[in-house]
Design a protein around this nucleic acid. Sequence first.
DNA 1: GATGAATGAGTATTCATTCAT
DNA 2: AATGAATGAATACTCATTCAT
Lengths: 188, 188, 188, 188
Amino acid sequence: MARLKSDEKRHAILAAATRVIAAHGLGAPTALIAKEAGISNGSLFTYFETKAELLNQLYIELKTEMGTAAFDAFPSENSPREQLRHVWTNWLHWAVTDPKKRRTLAHLSVSDEITAGSHQAAALAFGEIAALVDRCRSGGPMRTAPLSLVLTIMSGVADAAMDYMLRDPANADAHCETAFEAAWRMIE
Amino acid sequence: MARLKSDEKRHAILAAATRVIAAHGLGAPTALIAKEAGISNGSLFTYFETKAELLNQLYIELKTEMGTAAFDAFPSENSPREQLRHVWTNWLHWAVTDPKKRRTLAHLSVSDEITAGSHQAAALAFGEIAALVDRCRSGGPMRTAPLSLVLTIMSGVADAAMDYMLRDPANADAHCETAFEAAWRMIE
Amino acid sequence: MARLKSDEKRHAILAAATRVIAAHGLGAPTALIAKEAGISNGSLFTYFETKAELLNQLYIELKTEMGTAAFDAFPSENSPREQLRHVWTNWLHWAVTDPKKRRTLAHLSVSDEITAGSHQAAALAFGEIAALVDRCRSGGPMRTAPLSLVLTIMSGVADAAMDYMLRDPANADAHCETAFEAAWRMIE
Amino acid sequence: MARLKSDEKRHAILAAATRVIAAHGLGAPTALIAKEAGISNGSLFTYFETKAELLNQLYIELKTEMGTAAFDAFPSENSPREQLRHVWTNWLHWAVTDPKKRRTLAHLSVSDEITAGSHQAAALAFGEIAALVDRCRSGGPMRTAPLSLVLTIMSGVADAAMDYMLRDPANADAHCETAFEAAWRMIE
DNA sequence: GATGAATGAGTATTCATTCAT
DNA sequence: AATGAATGAATACTCATTCAT
């Protein structure tokens, strides 16, 4: 019970941080995040020891959520191409559906406050995507490149496409598809 | 006459800012930048009215330098593919040659302090790359996609590759080549 | 509950500001005021959002105190002349009793930081004096002049007398009396 | 010749300071005063060693000018009353004619930067007024009060009246007259 | 636990004054 | 003498974090 309450507030803080950071950047005061979360500034620090800790947790949370969203309704029976397309579409649309999360994640991804450990923890959530990409590229031109390089490049394309979709949401679907075809051509 | 505002000093500040921001992020104190540039903290503000102004100038400078570097020794006589490969290689190696510039530019690119005007000014330096990419994609599968989308995606790949090259500089050349081939496949 | 913003501390700051400004003028550093008040420099800003805010509050406080002091032990039964003499004496002696308050108020009265609102708020404290002066001048030569002009002039005389009393405190009582008789002659 | 040029610039600076201080208060940057005077910021200090020096000179200059203005077209033949009325009218109208000078003088009069020496130097310019007032009060109720007290109080009335006239310039003449009659009643 | 006042190090910017040209 | 860049001390205000209640 007590635990439940804690988790509730923890998430309230994380959600508030997402909103506030999207609007004010990483320099957003913890006091503002606390107020947005409906708690006192002091209380924030019983849930996260430091601001850096909060930022790291938020990074892991958002990245994990993005990775998880990508596998929503995963079509196990389909071809690898269709599977990747499905994952790709989920992935990119997550950004358009919740631009604040995407924006905050963009801020966090580039921050010096995020530790190597957090980056690793977040990478875990992309293990399945990694495996899928590995399967997809196995017969193609990038079959001998380091998988991590392939993944880095795919993420680069995805990030770029997200930005573009956010700038022109009306045609988001088309851009998403264009980007997928381009990405697919890289590996197959 | 009195001492004239020297371009030399201006560049010393910009160079110092590049180093300091690479190390400390955008939160780096102006006083530290000034000291690194060998001038007094007050003097910095005779060259840049405001920290934000300095950041914007630095952004434009670095981005322009990157764009210019890409066209170094441009092989006008070669095929589009070879031209793009040349540009691509210059481009990505600029990041490896001067990792601090790349790192600082990454910080700046994501900052809220950089105005739309600065982004536009910087985009100018990429006009030739845009034209080249446009030529290269003209017969390929992305011929009907918005050029800006194609460019955004290409930049995404380039950025991702730079990051990877920086993490594994020993094989930077190979990664650069792998990335180029992947990028080429997207458009041709 | 946490520690509550204490009125005690608020007044400590105001009192410290009075002392420090009397000595250093309006340019007195907030840090010095804070130290004099026995709090940290940051704490000052939990009680007053801004230095200007502190100055305005102090102005209202001092002016109100001065107006209130003038009506101390007010002899309701006496003649208007005796009432005014009583008020006048209280008024002028307030300055001599607490020269720092008078000095600080002189600084504040002339400052651009004091808003029209603060001037109005402070004027409230002089409503009774205004009424009394109005009664006193009603049968005399200034009966048709704008009351506000009469009050302005009376204040001018009072201010001048205060200054003089401060320069020669040994004969303050006599000077106060001389000034009162002069002021009385103006209106009756 | 060289001397003339100097004097010209000296006065340009003093005039600029009057304007700038009227608008921005005593905190006005010397650089702004210099620009307004049409010289470089550095040059200002060849005419006045320090800002405080400039302020003191300006104080003396303005106060002297005010005192001198009061005796303009002095009617030597008239009665003391008419003489005082003439001086009084000149005096108060100086403020209305050139509100910036009056405003700046008000700022300076209250400043800690003005030395006792400057106050004395300025007082010199009021010697004639003092003598006139002395003559006027010689047969009246303030004949035994310290002359300096009488003068202080008269100045207080004058200052108050100036302020009022500045707030209601349309009726400045009437207010000036009202104030004179009041002042006269004090001494005669 | 929760609250929010208290703390004080940290920072961009200003400005009188100096000095190289 | 004039210029205006250089200097660096000075200062209001912010904010992560602590701690008394």
